[in-house]
Design a protein around this nucleic acid. Structure first.
Lengths: 215, 215
DNA sequence: GGTATGTCAATTGTATACAGTTTCAATGAG
DNA sequence: CTCATTGAAACTGTATACAATTGACATACC
């Protein structure tokens, strides 16, 4: 096995394969419903079937692929309903994050939140749209950090990836608008107003939903 | 390979291994922190390392074991905080289920809910404690069915298993009391009162928490 | 002509073999 | 006595080989 194509060794290959496949799915290289044959993928990524298998099964748990015994894996197809179900869950959990953040935040965490938020607002006003996605995830990570619930943060992370993918076709750039909503969350968190924080976070996700779905 | 010990063939061995291991962990046969060596498990369950590996990685995603690269898997150790974090999440999601159920239920679903609830109340009054666990999960499954959000139902299912495990040592039998709380949820669902349903469900989980933790 | 059946290719499920790391203990030096 | 070194054992990560099942297509039968 000379010069493997993906990430460096000894972070297990399966991990590299996992992210590689997930990226390929999310970015649309593999389209929904498409069959994912283990050996084909193995050839393509230049590893043996073992790591591929593991990655596929993990992706099945995460929900990106569906596996039927003896019939193999295929990229998940999302009905509108499933996507909406996901969204409702995220709405709820994002509200929880905001509430917890309001209750538990330290002054340090509040400071970083403010910083990220200001940066985001500045980038939005300056139309530096290429920076907005990473700032956006940065904001939500900071909020999750303040909420201090690792499990919740991980859940939300995969969920938001899935939602992004599920609604990919309909996304209109609204990353600029969202920073005013971010600010509202930060203000509530600063005031330790749990109810307001939760409401603001839910409004935020709600608006994203409207932008994605277009109703 | 003559006469494998676990479930019948052609539901993949990995699936059988998965549930077998999870049961063993939850029931305390493997204690928190204990190392889970692939080959030992393979010998014990009379399969090769392949299925064991897969099952372990899936359990890692579910949160029952932790895997460090090149160092193997061990049963997760739960801090009090992590358990509480889990509980908060469940509290929120269980509330969401009740709310959705109140909004979306059909008459049929309401009928089954009522049936399960009556059965549970009867069993509780008759002190038939051995029937209560399955009736309890039956009730929550029926509620999830009415809520009509598969993803949410699956999430909650694993979460409740984990919580049961995490607090296992402290569980006091409160399965009898809980049926009055169940009834309150059903009434709210019947009246299509989403707010009341959500509140009742959260009260229910909250009480379970108190019983588990003992504060 | 339509349905049942048999055969074959494709693909997954499982086992085994080997290579590379990590761990742990014994040994030796300071 | 403590700490670093080194060697071997244990274990994981990966590859390859084989067995078993499925699905499709062709063929035979009613």
């Amino acid at each position: 096995m000379p010069e493997p194509k993906l990430g460096r060794r000894h972070q297990p290959l399966a991990a590299a394969v996992l992210t590689s496949l997930r990226d390929a799915i999310v970015s649309g290289i593999y389209s929904p419903g498409q069959r994912l044959v283990e050996e084909d993928l193995a050839l393509e990524l230049e590893v043996s079937r073992g790591p591929i298998r593991e990655a596929l099964h993990l992706l099945a748990v995460e929900g990106f692929v569906e596996i039927e015994p003896r019939r193999g894996a295929k990229v998940s197809v999302f009905t509108r309903k499933q996507a909406d179900d996901l969204f409702v869950m995220r709405l709820t959990l994002e509200g929880l994050v905001a509430r917890l953040a309001a209750e538990r935040r330290t002054e340090d965490q509040l400071r970083t939140l403010r910083e990220v938020c200001d940066e985001g607002l500045a980038a939005a006003e300056a139309q530096r749209t290429e920076d907005l996605p990473s700032l956006n995830t940065g904001f939500h990570e900071a909020l999750a950090d303040a909420a201090d619930n690792t499990l919740l943060a991980e859940q939300l992370s995969t969920m938001s990836t899935m939602i992004q993918w599920a609604y990919a076709k309909r996304i209109r750039e609204r990353l600029g608008d969202s920073w005013n909503e971010h600010r509202a969350i930060v203000d509530a968190v600063a005031a330790r107003d749990a109810v307001a924080a939760e409401a603001a976070a839910q409004r935020h996700v709600q608006n994203a939903w409207v932008a994605y779905v277009g109703n």
